[in-house]
Simulated scan of single mutants.
Amino acid sequence: MTPPNLNALGPCWEAVIPCIHRAANHFWSTLADRLHPRLPERDAPLFLATLGHLTAGDDHHAGRTALLAALAPTYQHLRIQPHHHPLIVDALIATVARHATATWTPETASLWQRRSHHALSLTHRATTRIATGPAWTPAEIIGRDQAADTITILTLRPHHRLRHEAGQALPVTTPRQPGAWRWYFPANAPRPDGTIELHIRAITGGPVSPLLAHHAAIGEQVWLGTPYAMGLALDPNRDGDLLLAAGGTGLAPLRAIVEHLAATRARRRVTLVVGARTMPDLYDSVTLDKLQTTHDDWLTVVPALSDEPFVEPAAQGDLLTLALAHYQPGQHLYVAGPPDLITHARLRLPAAGIPDNRLHLAETFSRTPLAGAQPKTPRQD
């Protein structure tokens, strides 16, 4: 007998999403007197959406890892244990069956049973391999700026102060697509007012980035997971000057590092090479100009324009070529940007003589299958 296709879960879950709050009421009521400690009613829609998406979703590796990184601290915060899994699975299946009657069959019920147990097992394993942190927190969008054709800058005010460090990333989801989480780097060092700036590039076909970039409005709410150190955070026990190479929205964590050094008055010279195809693609230039003007005694910002023939020769070329032209022995080199850039950097920079212990590259999740492991540096989409 041919096993049921995993794609059979998709139509069921798609039927639940439009009525997620009503479905969450049923899910929460089913668990209310059986799960101790109780799932807070206010968290039920997001918990259901995230667990349902993990069970039914046909997501890429980075998305699944962001989802687990968001769900695991909440799972831990609620003190859920494996002996609770059957109760949660029963409530999930009853909820999906109630709202997906047109696509519900005994075969899909059996598949939901197996897949939801697997999803909870992954979540439990993730709690043993990631740093303990607070559960997700809502954040209000208080500012938006169309920085380029495909890049939007959102300013968020979390309801509770989010303790993050420059270079860390955090999972983000929107009520417009509940349960789908994606990684984003805050583009700022921690601020006194607790606000966070995210740089969103709209990825065609992406489940989160087009919604945030094109539709999320001031006053709207998003949800933020626990920040994670993912290889780009500065090691306080290391010194030496820095060479930062930013491609696209990879500028976000590297700009945060510059802000951190400015706030702490660290005595390290920094060269920030910012890559783009053309001048219009070189977004956030006003902020970069202000940073360089204020800190010109230790900060140099260098544009790297790959398809712009009418700029000075020193600014023409691809990002890695110009970064290598500015490299000085002893510098720590940080590279952040799209997956293709990181793949190329992983091959090219060691071959150019950059020592492994001074090379810091963003991981993209493209090489290792998910097993509830410690999140590394994310792909942003």
Rank of each mutant, 00 (worst) to 15 (best):
R161F: 09
S121Q: 13
H118N: 06
T101C: 12
T95W: 12
P86V: 13
E107T: 15
E165K: 10
Q168M: 10
A119S: 14
P171I: 10
S110D: 15
R176K: 06
L87Q: 07
A147W: 09
Q177P: 04
T174D: 06
T95I: 09
A102S: 10
H159C: 14
H124P: 05
L111Y: 06
T132I: 13
H85I: 12
E165T: 14
T127H: 01
H117D: 07
A100E: 00
W104P: 03
H84I: 02
I88C: 04
W136Y: 14
I142M: 10
W112E: 00
A100T: 00
T173M: 13
T105C: 09
L120Y: 05
A119H: 05
E107F: 12
E107H: 14
L122V: 05
I142Y: 03
A148C: 05
I151D: 02
L120H: 04
H124N: 13
L162T: 15
T174H: 10
P171D: 10
T108W: 03
I93A: 07
A100Y: 00
A131L: 09
R163N: 12
T103R: 12
G143P: 00
V89I: 06
H85P: 01
R157E: 10
I142S: 05
D90V: 08
L120Q: 08
W136R: 07
P175M: 11
A119N: 05
T95Y: 07
R182Q: 06
W104V: 00
I141C: 07
E165G: 14
T101S: 12
Q177I: 09
W112G: 04
A97F: 09
I153H: 04
R98S: 11
R125Y: 11
A109E: 15
L156V: 08
W136T: 06
T105Q: 12
Q81N: 06
W181E: 04
A94T: 15
R98E: 14
A148M: 10
R125P: 02
D149G: 14
L170H: 00
A97S: 12
T137W: 05
T95M: 11
A139M: 00
A169P: 08
A126K: 04
I151S: 01
Y184V: 02
T132S: 11
P158W: 11
A148L: 03
P82S: 04
A131F: 05
H85F: 12
I141H: 03
A169C: 14
H118G: 02
P171A: 15
W136D: 02
Q81P: 03
Q168F: 03
E107P: 13
I130D: 01
R98F: 11
R98G: 03
H159D: 14
S110R: 15
V89F: 01
Q113I: 04
T95K: 08
I153E: 10
H83G: 07
W183T: 01
A109Q: 15
